[in-house]
Structure formats: structure tokens, C-alpha cells
């Protein structure tokens, strides 16, 4: 097992990035060289390499590196909680839909269809616009938008597992529906759930950044990667570093989670397992 984990390059690289981002977010106050909100107007819009400001400053002279480090907290938190919400909702609905089939499946399936008909961003945008911009609403919006993705994956996995003989065998020796679902169905559909979660966090970070960029996320001055890009947008000509570094942070985090998810998928696939 350990050997196989270490052999998988995507998993090792993705895992390294994911762990790094998490560590940065958790220990942000300790790592960040200064307070992300302390302004120093004489040093505003200085480029990278400026003494004291490794990545430079923004339009209020706030240290960009510190803001990015603190921004990781919001981006990650939004990503993880939103995906957790989506995963739990998707898991429950997917289980009901896949296991019971019939009209339950029909109703849940149509709801998923409707949600999937909207692009994720548009759906999240509509929800935030309706509820008003705030961290909580942002998470709800992303959670709702990701639910059908999870639901679909889980329903498919369950349909595949359901038709296996060991489920019939469980019925034949007298196991109840709930027991069978808990003991035989769920453990066998968890691998795709774990993989989807990991991939989902990447895209949730992107969605959060997009909404924050549009001003519908967390309100300033709290830094997030999305609103840092938004801040830098007006100064792209003078200080391109602001948007560039924030964008790079998003890319690295998303790539990290995607690689990690890909690696997990290979690792958990029983066909590859020895």
C-alpha cells in the first residue's frame, strides 16, 4: 500500500501541494510576514522584490504575500465546507435515488437535471444575488451548485453496485434495506465520492474566486484570492503582480487538488489494486 502511494506521482505531487496549502491556511498568522490589513500608503503599488515586501504591495500598500497567505484560509474554507455540504446532500440524494429507483429516482433525477441545466457559476450567482453576499451564503450557493454533480456520480456508482450478486446475497440471507445500504452499498461507492470531493474542492475554490472577483463573495477588507485579483484588475498596467500572483495561487491550489483526486482515483480503483 505505502509503496503504491509513493509510486503514484500525481498523488505525491498533489498531496504535497494540498498539504502545503492547508498548512499555510492553518498557520497563516504565524507565517505571514505582516498584518494583511495594515496599510502603508507610501509603499503602495510597489513591485515584487521591494525590500520588506517580497511580492510587492497593493493599492493601499498592504503586503501582497501576507494577503495571499490569509486569503488561502477563506478560499480553502469556502472550498472545503461548500464541497462538504454538496457531498453530503449529494450522497443522501444519490443513495435514495440509486437504491430505491422508481419514482424516487425519477423525482430526484429531474431536480438534478434542472440544477445541472444552469452553469455552476450562474446558479451560484443567482443564489448569492438572492440571499445577499456573505461567506455563509457563498458556501450555500457553491454547495447547492455542486450537489447534483455528486448525486449523479453516486447514483451511477450505486446502480453498478446494486446489480452485483453480493447485494442479492445480502437480501437472500435476510439483511434489511438499511443494513445492506450501510454495510454493502456505501463502502463500495465511497471511492468515487472521495475522488469527486477532491476534484470538487478545486473547482469550488475557482467558483469562490470568481464570485469574490465579481464582488459577490466575502466583503473587503478580508482578503480572498478572488477579491485580490479584483483589486489588482484596475492596476494591471502598473502593478500586474497583484492579479498575477493571486491567479497563480488559485492555479496551484486547483492543480494540486485535481492531481490529488486523480491519484486517489487510481489508488482506489480495485482493478489497479493488487
Amino acid at each position: 500500500m505505502n509503496k503504491r502511494v509513493l509510486k503514484s506521482r500525481p498523488l505525491v505531487l498533489g498531496g504535497f501541494i494540498v498539504i502545503s496549502v492547508v498548512m499555510v491556511a492553518v498557520f497563516a498568522p504565524l507565517i505571514a510576514p505582516m498584518d494583511p490589513n495594515s496599510q502603508s500608503l507610501e509603499n503602495r503599488l510597489s513591485g515584487w522584490g521591494t525590500p520588506g515586501y517580497i511580492l510587492g504591495t497593493d493599492q493601499y500598500g498592504r503586503d501582497l504575500l501576507s494577503r495571499l497567505i490569509h486569503g488561502a484560509r477563506i478560499s480553502l474554507l469556502a472550498g472545503v465546507i461548500a464541497v462538504a455540504v454538496g457531498a453530503v446532500a449529494g450522497l443522501v440524494l444519490g443513495l435514495l435515488s440509486g437504491y430505491f429507483g422508481g419514482w424516487v429516482d425519477l423525482v430526484i433525477g429531474r431536480i438534478f437535471d434542472v440544477l445541472l441545466a444552469f452553469p455552476t457559476i450562474l446558479l451560484a450567482l443567482a443564489i448569492v444575488a438572492a440571499l445577499g453576499p456573505s461567506m455563509t451564503n457563498l458556501i450555500i450557493a457553491i454547495g447547492v451548485a455542486t450537489t447534483p454533480h455528486f448525486g449523479r456520480v453516486i447514483r451511477g456508482a450505486i446502480l453498478a453496485v446494486r446489480s452485483r450478486d453480493y447485494i442479492v446475497a445480502a437480501e437472500a440471507f435476510g439483511a434489511s434495506d438499511f443494513y445492506t445500504m450501510w454495510r454493502h452499498v456505501l463502502p463500495n461507492v465511497l471511492p468515487p465520492v472521495i475522488v469527486t470531493t477532491s476534484l470538487g474542492i478545486g473547482s469550488a475554490i475557482q467558483t469562490e474566486a470568481t464570485l469574490s472577483f465579481l464582488g459577490l463573495g466575502v466583503s473587503p477588507p478580508t482578503p480572498t484570492w478572488g477579491n485580490i485579483i479584483n483589486d489588482g484588475q484596475a492596476y494591471l498596467g502598473i502593478a500586474p503582480g497583484i492579479s498575477l500572483f493571486a491567479g497563480a495561487a488559485i492555479v496551484v491550489a486547483v492543480v494540486g487538488f485535481s492531481l490529488f483526486g486523480d491519484g486517489l482515483r487510481d489508488l482506489l480503483d480495485p482493478r489497479v489494486r493488487k
Binding site: 452485483r164 450478486d165 453480493y166 442479492v168 446475497a169 437480501e171 437472500a172 440471507f173 435476510g174 434489511s176 434495506d177 454493502h184 463502502p187 463500495n188 480495485p270
Partner: peptide, 26 residues
């Protein structure tokens, strides 16, 4: 119904065709 059948189940057992699919891999 299923609940009525449950106590009888142990008397009626089945062996399946597919040796790969009939055992829970986990």
C-alpha cells in the same frame, strides 16, 4: 413481505454464478 420472509431466509439459500460479483470486495 420482506419482514415476514426474514426468519425463513436462513432456510433458503443461494449460490451464485459469478464468483467475482457475489462476494463484497470490501
Amino acid at each position: 413481505g420482506r419482514s415476514h420472509l426474514r426468519p425463513i431466509r436462513k432456510d433458503l439459500q443461494m449460490v451464485f454464478q459469478d464468483p467475482y460479483g457475489s462476494l463484497d470486495p470490501r
